[in-house]
Computed example of a mutant assay.
Amino acid sequence: MDNAIHTLLQAMWEDYLELAPDARSIHDLFAASNNGNVVNDHIALRTYSLPEVNLAVIARAFTDHGYIEGGEYEFPARKLFAKHFQHPNPELPKVFISELLVEKLSEQAQQHITALVDQVTPDATQSPLFCCSGRPWQLDTQTYDELLAESEYAAWVAAFGYRANHFTVSINHLSEPDTIVDLNHLLQKHGYILNDTGGLVKGSPDVLLEQSSTMAKKVTVDFTDGTREIPGCFYEFAKRYPTGDGTLYQGFVAASADKIFTSTHTKAE
């Protein structure tokens, strides 16, 4: 494996664990019954569409190491656009990168986001570890609240910056549980709170992908004028089904991903 991409993925995992309090224990729960083998299906990243930090900028850390585009996805109601990237080495996780279409927001929200991104130095985005570097700007609670009133996604990126929004357990690589329903039951039995937007299971064998996720637990975030507890990162679970040629489907389903986005929401949708 390319040492540089391995270093990046490990750094992203360690950073993510700090914002996903349940992830380590869930990972260990599955590792215990699968000989320590828990495979990551994909990692998700969020950003804004402004040219300094847009999807293409975030993707560079991966495309520089052999990742190629695998699909495009639109979420008109959330004003989001996304692409996924995959590597010829099937052992490497897919990467799902979404961006908020800032030009579709209110003038006030656009001004807030532009002011945040103006604080990002060109050198920062050139770093191969930018996508797990955290928040590259100063943020006060009023700006956060005003963004939150318009877009949960906008507020999350403002508060957390650049890091994995979630990692994903590949159910296909688990010997047990081997169905998403059994996996969800196991997690609930252990007291984990799951995202029930549109039902616990998003997708179906008919669309070749089933997904579920925990709800992000609140973590303490520092603002320039104090601290606040807000939802951090979550853990996702994916079961893929074979396409007509017998290979597992490698893409994503926009209708399902749309519901997964609510895993970091501060209020019910």
Results as ranks from 00 to 15, higher is better:
Leu208Cys: 11
Thr7Lys: 14
Arg163Pro: 06
Pro21Asp: 08
Pro136Leu: 06
Ala77Met: 14
Ser263Gly: 12
Asp2Ala: 02
Ser170Glu: 08
Trp156Gly: 01
Asp140Lys: 11
Ser175Pro: 00
Gln142Thr: 14
Gln188Glu: 13
Glu269Leu: 11
Ile180Ala: 07
Phe234Ser: 05
Cys131Ala: 04
Ala77Glu: 15
Gly36Leu: 01
Phe167Lys: 10
Glu269Ala: 13
Ser33Gly: 10
Glu99Asn: 06
Thr227Gln: 11
Leu194Asn: 02
Ile5Val: 10
His173Asp: 15
Ile230His: 09
Glu99Ala: 10
Phe160Ala: 06
Leu45His: 04
Phe30Ala: 08
Trp137Val: 02
Gly191Trp: 00
Ala77Ile: 10
Ala164Asn: 02
Gln142Arg: 11
Leu183Asp: 03
Ala44Gly: 13
Lys104Thr: 12
Glu146Gln: 11
Leu105Pro: 15
Thr197Gln: 14
Ser175Met: 05
Glu229Val: 07
Leu55Pro: 03
Gly226Asp: 07
Asp178Phe: 08
Asp64Ser: 10
Arg163Val: 02
Lys239His: 08
Ser170Gln: 08
Thr63Phe: 03
Met1Cys: 05
Ala77Thr: 13
Glu52Ala: 14
Thr168Met: 01
Gly71Phe: 01
Ala4Gln: 15
Arg78Val: 00
Asp196Pro: 14
Asn184Met: 08
Ala56Asp: 11
Gly71Asp: 03
Thr262His: 01
Thr143Gln: 09
Ile26Leu: 12
Ala109Cys: 08
Gln111Leu: 05
Ala155Thr: 07
Pro122Asp: 06
Glu91Tyr: 00
Glu18Gln: 14
Ala158Ile: 09
Glu69Val: 00
Leu8Ile: 03
Phe81Arg: 01
Ser170Asp: 14
Asn165His: 12
Gln142Tyr: 11
Glu176Phe: 04
Gly244Ala: 14
Asp145Ser: 12
Lys83Phe: 06
Gln119Trp: 01
Asp118Gln: 15
Arg240Glu: 07
Ala124Tyr: 05
Ala155Ser: 09
Ala77Cys: 09
Glu236Tyr: 08
Leu209His: 08
Asp2Lys: 06
His65Asn: 09
Gly66Glu: 02
Gly36Thr: 03
Thr243Gln: 13
Val57Asn: 04
Val95Tyr: 00
Ala154Gln: 09
Leu8Gly: 01
Met215Pro: 00
Val181His: 00
Gln138Arg: 03
Glu236Ser: 04
Ala77Tyr: 13
Asp2Ser: 08
Leu147Phe: 04
Pro177Cys: 04
Val57Ser: 04
Pro93Lys: 05
Val39Ala: 03
Asn40Gln: 14
Phe261Tyr: 15
Met215Ala: 00
Glu210Ala: 07
Leu29Met: 13
Gln126Tyr: 05
Asn40Arg: 13
Cys132Arg: 09
Gln142Glu: 13
Pro205Asn: 06
Asp245Met: 06
Gln119Arg: 04
His87Val: 08
Pro242Met: 04
Lys94Gln: 05
Asp15Thr: 04
Ala4Glu: 15
Ala158Trp: 12
Tyr235Val: 05
Leu19Glu: 05
Lys189Val: 07
Ile260Trp: 08
Leu200Gly: 09
